[in-house]
Amino acid sequence: MAKPPQPSRRGATRQQRQAGKTKNPWRTGQRFDIKLYLRQHQAFLKESLGRLVGHPLASIMTILVIAISLSLPGGLFVLLKNVQSVTDQWEQQSVISLYLFPNQDDTQALSLSHQLSSRADVASVEYISKEEGLRYFEQSSGYEEIMSTLPENPLPIVLKVIPKAAVDLTTLPALQELRAHLQSLPQVEHAELDAEWLQRLATILDFGQRFVYAISALLVFAVLLIVGNTIRTAVESRRDEVLVMKLVGATNSYIRRPFLYMGFWFGVLGGVFATLCIILLTLWVSAPAEQLIELYHAEFELQSFNAVEIIICLTISALIGVIGSWIAVSRHIRDIELQ
């Protein structure tokens, strides 16, 4: 065997010494073999599943805890998705009412009305003079007598701007922008978008979304801890094996691998059960939910997880499993040293 160059210890910087340390005279010549790598992984995948099956009760308990922890954020996600799909259908004719300053006369107001109706995002503008306004008011409110006691008509000229877009959750921001623009016109005292309840709904949905994210983050953390703890116990119970493997020259990454796969299986199986839970739950509530929505004369079909979402859910749960076991196993394998 060729003698590798010996780093001179005297006068070498710490860094150089470190570099010298990582050099491995016996590793050279060993090429990375992709086939071998894949074969080992396949073997580990099978072996680690076998170990899970070997301790069925403990494995099922862990998997169920993971499944329950994951099905809560998953279920909330489905709920949110459905609320959004329902509210997306809810739209109404949008109207922005412009209350002009009292000093505006009919000619000025009419010219503003023409100007606005030529805008691309405006369908039409309805002109309501002071007198018309007074008539509407008297008819609808029944304050005829009180109004007749006033010396003059207190009502302003109103322009009802009908935008092209109907108002719903998706068009709301653009309409709010239009309202702000109209408010900024010099003739306009006050501009009002008649969509208060939609604005409230949007806020509630935003709140709901953040709530779901926060809950999800907490429960993902919980699953990391559950997997980590389970894997730590598994490593501890195989202490002798880890020691023998270190003795016969196993690298830490080789020792780590079966445990990572174990975490992978816990994650995936937990994800599968969580998905099943959510699908069953949606089936269970679908009949009453659809009846409820029908009362509001809306078309509605309760949505469950679709294929893409199932894949995303399983991927995330598998990742959580691998990461949780990685953290536990890296810490633990370093602690188990030959003596």
Binding site: Q6, Q18, T22, K23, N24, P25, R27, K246, T251
Partner: peptide, 8 residues
């Protein structure tokens, strides 16, 4: 001169 990675 061997680092931890060389031990196995």
């Amino acid at each position: 001169t061997l680092g931890k990675g060389a031990i196995p």
